[in-house]
């Protein structure tokens, strides 16, 4: 996945630069830098650095495949800092199980929340998100989940809509 992410960044960098070169003016008629100059500099640096980065990640991935030894995951900066101080390897601190599936589920719920917010209104969307989230990850407390799913959105809605007078999406119920 790390290599795929690096490859994705390289593709985006190429797309960014190509789009800039084709749609933006690089130099004015007097030869001065125009709107496309800075994006071109950034884009070229991005392509170069992303290509080197992808090469490094690819080689690391090949080594992992050959030796069969894969690190648990990228050590967190905090863990690295602590490991430096203690003189131990970062993965000795930052290890443990991973919950990639849960990340996908929560991210899906967040996307769903944003997608329905404009149709059902902010308050109802918040309540729905909380119900779905809590009944997925905190199944043992149905009553608590229900109360929490109603109370927190009501408080936040009151805070943003009433106290801060912010404009939030309004649903069919007028909320």
């Amino acid at each position: 996945m790390k290599t795929l992410f690096a490859a994705g960044l390289l593709i985006l960098a190429i797309g960014y630069t190509a789009y800039g070169v084709t749609t933006l003016t690089l130099l004015t008629s007097s030869g001065r830098p125009a709107a496309g100059f800075f994006p071109l500099v950034v884009g070229m640096l991005l392509i170069l650095s992303c290509a080197i980065n992808l090469w490094g990640d690819w080689r690391a991935w090949l080594t992992e495949r050959r030796t069969g030894i894969a690190p648990l995951h990228q050590a967190e900066p905090e863990a690295e800092a602590k490991a430096d101080t203690l003189g131990v390897h970062a993965h000795a601190i930052d290890g443990g199980p991973e919950f990639g599936r849960d990340v996908l589920i929560v991210f899906g719920y967040i996307c769903g929340f944003v997608a329905v917010m404009t149709f059902v209104g902010a308050l109802l969307a918040m309540v729905l998100f909380m119900l779905v989230f809590l009944f997925t990850f905190n199944r043992g407390h149905p009553l608590g989940n229900l109360v929490y799913s109603l109370a927190l959105p009501a408080c936040l809605y009151g805070l943003f809509k009433v106290l801060l007078n912010a404009s939030l999406p309004i649903g069919p119920l007028g909320l």
Binding site: M117, A122, F129, M130, L152, L156
Partner: peptide, 19 residues
């Protein structure tokens, strides 16, 4: 529990960004 903190953060982020 952190499971109860997650919705607070998500709601604040999404509603805040929209507002």
């Amino acid at each position: 529990p952190y499971v109860n903190v997650v919705p607070v953060i998500v709601l604040l982020c999404v509603v805040g960004a929209f507002a």
